[in-house]
Design a protein around this nucleic acid. Sequence first.
DNA 1: TCACTGGCTATGAAAAAGCTAAGCCAGGCT
DNA 2: AGCCTGGCTTAGCTTTTTCATAGCCAGTGA
Lengths: 193, 193
Amino acid sequence: MPTTDDDHAEHLRPDQGADPHITLTGRLADRDSWRADNCPIVAALDVIGTRSAFVIMREALYGASRFEQFVKRTQLSEPIIATRLRELTEAGLLAKEPYREPGERTRNAYRLTEKGADLLPALTALFSWGTRWQLSSRPPVELAHSDCGGLVTSVLYCEHGHIVDPSTVELRPTRNQRDGTARSPSEADPKRA
Amino acid sequence: MPTTDDDHAEHLRPDQGADPHITLTGRLADRDSWRADNCPIVAALDVIGTRSAFVIMREALYGASRFEQFVKRTQLSEPIIATRLRELTEAGLLAKEPYREPGERTRNAYRLTEKGADLLPALTALFSWGTRWQLSSRPPVELAHSDCGGLVTSVLYCEHGHIVDPSTVELRPTRNQRDGTARSPSEADPKRA
DNA sequence: TCACTGGCTATGAAAAAGCTAAGCCAGGCT
DNA sequence: AGCCTGGCTTAGCTTTTTCATAGCCAGTGA
């Protein structure tokens, strides 16, 4: 196979399957000229960046709302469950709601909020990824669409209704809503050196 | 508002917006009768369950492949970067490939593999979630579909081509491929007490 | 009033994640 | 041969996560 002396060879994508990263466009193309301050992924991980938080959110999405349910279903320790439930409630992913069974005293339920439920695509994507790549056999449970019975995964989708192939995803400077002008990365990131 | 003494009131979903968890069906409906052993989400977190792993995968998807690039772009420490790169390579998400610039000695590049690239839906979902719920202003960058320019997120999608509303997602026992018979949870989970 | 109990908190400990700083070393150039 | 340097590793440390265990306490029923 002939080799190339092209200085840009490293930046090119010689083989879609070989190095399938997304394309950085505009001023983002030079990745070392900007920092990923205010990264939304890191912002998400500020709330749910521990293994125990993921597991608790899994059970919240599976319908758990009471402290004892989280204890039984996650196998995490009580101090950790209490701490995570408090943090997730303070962050708005769960809402503490008093409820009372007849003959028993008032307790609190940790109800899933819209903010918490909106993690379903992320957890579904991890569910699919883990199923495909990590488990040696199919898991005993699967996610399905109750309307039609089809299996559910998370896919990349654009606002124009296209299923987006990963090779056609690009990272670009955020555009102002009104005129489409790209915002300077530093414009929205005055913090941090 | 009248209250109900219905014993099943807690299990019902009185308000779709109030408690938007997914529906457990079949023998999974009694959540305390099975354990989430071999959970694909936990299996995924075995590989990528640290904040630093997420950040490194972000940069790999943004095109980083050299050790120094990960150092500059993540602000993580070198020992941690080296450890995570080794672990992600051993797990198959990155592939170590020697390359050589003219006049320089051979180095290794950490190339994204198909397995690694398949985390894009999960990272995109976290990107969207963080954008919507955590950042006080829009991030300076956005994900777009290069074919049409539309913004990209992760959505729930079923194998029959439907965009799936979260309220129509269910967790069900995995069906055998041939005859659709559900597998017993213990069938695939002989391990762990 | 007393016993019970669900939902925590407190304590101490272990392990993991992450950091700073220093150092090693192989291989390229002079 | 010697110097330089990118890519690590090592050592020591801090912080975070997580655990086991014990205990507290408010509120309910007897």
